[in-house]
Simulated scan of single mutants.
Amino acid sequence: MEWTSIVAIYALFWVVSAFIMLPFGVQTHDEAGIEKIPGQADSAPANFRPGLIAKRATILAAVFTTVYVLNYAYGWVEARDLIFWGPTVR
């Protein structure tokens, strides 16, 4: 596998991981016991930390990319293993 392919796969996993990490560890102002600003949405986060989300996404994407590349190299799960119905190819 080319290194550029690995970088592209890592970037895709990073974006997906960032979206997965968004709701974890975030509290609303009501949950945190902080007074809201007039006109503020009830669901607005009180403690949004994009740096922490980026760190978590980086670690998770690295793990996913490593597993993906190792699976590509060693062939643990192949496309034919994912056919759950229909004609079987042996």
Rank of each mutant, 00 (worst) to 15 (best):
V15I: 12
A18Y: 15
W85F: 15
T88E: 10
S17A: 13
R49S: 13
R56T: 01
P38K: 15
L52A: 08
A54Y: 05
S43T: 10
D81G: 12
L52E: 05
S17E: 02
L22Y: 14
E35V: 04
A79H: 09
A44R: 14
W14H: 06
T4W: 15
Q27P: 00
A73E: 09
A41H: 06
A73I: 12
L22F: 12
A79T: 11
V15K: 05
L52C: 02
L52N: 02
I53Q: 00
V7E: 05
V69K: 12
A32L: 12
D30L: 11
F24N: 01
Y10Q: 01
H29A: 11
D30S: 10
D30A: 14
L12H: 00
L82G: 01
E2N: 13
W14S: 01
I53M: 05
F64H: 03
I83W: 13
S43G: 04
M21K: 08
M1K: 11
A46R: 07
A8W: 09
L12T: 05
F24Q: 03
W3A: 07
H29K: 12
I34N: 01
E31L: 04
T65H: 12
V26E: 04
A18D: 00
D42L: 15
I34R: 07
E31A: 06
D42A: 15
L52G: 01
F64M: 13
V15H: 01
R80T: 02
P45Y: 15
Y72D: 03
K55V: 11
Y72I: 03
V15Y: 05
G39K: 13
N47W: 09
P23Y: 13
P50S: 10
G86T: 12
W14I: 04
R56I: 02
A41T: 00
G33K: 05
R90V: 09
G25P: 04
V63K: 03
V67I: 11
M21W: 07
A18S: 04
R90A: 11
K55I: 14
L12G: 13
Y68T: 09
W85L: 15
N47T: 05
G25F: 06
V89L: 06
I53V: 03
A54T: 02
T66N: 00
F13W: 07
G75K: 07
A54N: 03
V7G: 06
V77R: 09
A44Q: 13
V15A: 11
